[in-house]
Amino acid sequence: MTVPKPSDNYLHYVKKSDIVRSTVEGTEATALCGECFVACGLTGAQGSAELGEVCPICLGEYLTLSPGRSAQSKVVA
């Protein structure tokens, strides 16, 4: 499976701690699909029409996490 490119405008699931670090420090966060980027701070619900579509690879990985681990991840643009 191909990892989506940032230009695909997907929302990605990222660990909450990585989102905070990336937003505050400007460092890269790594999505569940392996995509690395600096979080812009936008967050949304799965498939939120106003923000974009969720990365299919991230969504698949997110759905395989246990409930406790999935609570540690959030969708970001």
Rank of each mutant, 00 (worst) to 15 (best):
C58Y: 01
N9P: 00
V38S: 03
A39K: 03
S70P: 00
V3W: 00
A39L: 00
S48E: 14
L63N: 12
P56G: 06
E35P: 00
Q46R: 09
T30E: 10
H12V: 04
G47Q: 12
T27R: 02
T43N: 02
K5S: 14
T30S: 03
C36M: 11
V38E: 06
C58M: 01
K74M: 05
P6F: 12
N9Q: 13
E28L: 11
A29Y: 11
K16S: 08
D18N: 08
A71T: 01
R69P: 02
A77P: 00
G34V: 01
N9L: 12
K16C: 04
A29M: 06
E35C: 09
A71N: 08
A31N: 01
G26T: 12
G26K: 07
L59V: 02
A49N: 08
T27H: 00
Q72C: 05
T2A: 12
E50L: 10
P4S: 12
V38F: 03
V24R: 15
L11M: 15
T43A: 05
V24F: 11
N9I: 05
P6K: 14
K5N: 15
V76R: 05
K74Y: 00
V75W: 04
G47S: 09
Y13W: 13
C36S: 15
V75C: 01
L51S: 05
T43L: 04
V38T: 14
S17W: 01
T23H: 11
Y62Q: 09
K16L: 02
G44A: 14
T27G: 03
N9H: 13
N9V: 06
T2C: 05
C58H: 02
P56V: 08
D18I: 03
C55Q: 06
T64D: 09
D18E: 14
S22L: 06
V20C: 06
T2W: 09
S7T: 15
I57N: 09
A45L: 10
C55P: 08
A49Y: 08
P56S: 11
G52A: 06
K16V: 05
V75E: 03
F37V: 04
V54A: 14
S22H: 09
A49T: 12
S70N: 05
A45E: 13
S22R: 10
S17E: 14
T27M: 01
K16I: 02
S22G: 14
D8V: 08
K15W: 12
A39T: 04
L32D: 03
L65K: 13
C55H: 10
K15I: 02
R21V: 02
P67N: 09
R21P: 00
I19L: 10
K15F: 11
